[in-house]
Design a protein around this nucleic acid. Structure first.
Lengths: 222, 222
DNA sequence: GACAGTATAGACCACTGGTCTAAATCTGTC
DNA sequence: GACAGATTTAGACCAGTGGTCTATACTGTC
């Protein structure tokens, strides 16, 4: 473990230009082939990094990937304008979520690169284990969001937070992917409308009191 | 492409005992390491298959994986009792979905092996491309289900079918995974209750007329 | 100039999935 | 039984993989 930290520290102290050049090429390769299929050797050749350098500044292939993703993640966070105030009631809560939703969506729509990087992460299990600490940060943020909603009564509290969070997040990821594949064929107006409807689905997942709405019968497992 | 089919045909004509023995070992390896990290060479050694044999009966590593998953899939379908009749109204539709839901859940709960195989498939993108035809079968089935619901007015029709299907399916997968990780710590009663609530979330996603239920404001993208 | 710590180059390793050739074994025919 | 042709098997071999390790070069300090 110490080795990882030392490598990370060395990378930090490197001149920006060099680090950027390296990560640019690595990112290109990882995005083109995915984490597993990306060839570390090819990256090193292209970036003119010797094996010795590589394992001096990165603990292993996964660590190089982590550096690439971390950079993109920080870039994304920089673009994201976080809501400053805690919402006071349900309406304000959903308003804020909707704003966040729109915010994230537009960022990803305008920045193909970041969007594709984000999708790449979720396509491969090993990629995720390589950046587990980043994912934990994200997960914690979502958990806090859900918790706030529950405190306000805006979000159902009859399921474990992480279960609900994971389900909602997975649904959103799928929606994002769908838009990435299908949005180009439709005009912007319909895309926007669809986007709102996806938000509707999202809200329906989280909202409490579904029982009183649709007539959903209890499950009858055999 | 012809090569794949010839290999498949050869495998089919092989004595059951041999094919089973081979696939058992391959399955063990794939489940233990995942598709990518599984070593084909190790499988061949363990199963006493020569390279020549391997590429005579399987087109490549992915084809071997496909054979393993296909066997498990057929096994799963065999356990699944499909609803015989088309539902006539919304209530019957949800009833049928709930039954299917419970059916699948109990099968996977009672059969750790099949459950784990199913999860493994969705953990790796390359695994999915290896069994793309199987996934298409599954996707088509779900699409038909959703379509029926839409015809009855039980399922919202304001989103493209595949988008809604993918979102719902992804959410269910996530739930399944959560149960796989967390169900052991809880007593069966609460697990059953949670299971019903997950179905509730699922139904809420698909149900139409969410606008009239919770007060969900329109999205306000910047 | 000697000595440390830092940094770099690249030979080398076991292993990967996949190809290919040559031999072995099976099959039908006379 | 003998031969021919196809089917099946064995395993040497290949380029490429991520990762290790040693030898060397560079740097500042006394």
């Amino acid at each position: 473990m110490n080795h990882r930290l030392r490598a990370r520290e060395r990378l930090r102290k490197l001149p920006d230009a060099q680090r950027t050049a390296w990560l640019d090429i690595a990112e290109e390769e990882f995005m083109a082939f995915g984490f597993e299929a990306a060839s570390l050797n090819r990256i090193l050749t292209r970036a003119a990094i010797s094996k010795g350098q590589a394992y001096y500044y990165f603990a292993d292939k996964g660590d190089l990937y982590r550096a690439v993703i971390e950079r993109a993640f920080d870039e994304f966070v920089g673009l994201l304008e976080v809501a400053p105030t805690e919402p006071e009631n349900t309406a304000a809560y959903w308003q804020q979520i909707a704003a966040l939703f729109g915010n994230v969506t537009t960022i990803l729509q305008r920045n193909d690169r970041l969007a594709e990087i984000g999708r790449g992460v979720y396509r491969e299990a090993r990629a995720q284990t390589a950046i587990v600490d980043l994912l934990e940060r994200l997960h914690a943020y979502l958990a806090r969001l859900i918790e706030t909603g529950q405190r306000l009564g805006a979000v159902r509290a009859d399921l474990p937070q992480d279960l609900l969070t994971n389900m909602a997040f997975a649904a959103l990821r799928e929606a994002d992917q769908w838009f990435a594949l299908n949005a180009i064929d439709r005009d912007q107006q319909t895309v926007l409308a669809l986007n709102h409807r996806v938000f509707t689905v999202f809200a329906a997942m989280l909202a409490p009191g579904t029982e009183s709405c649709g007539s959903v019968p209890p499950a009858t497992p055999s």
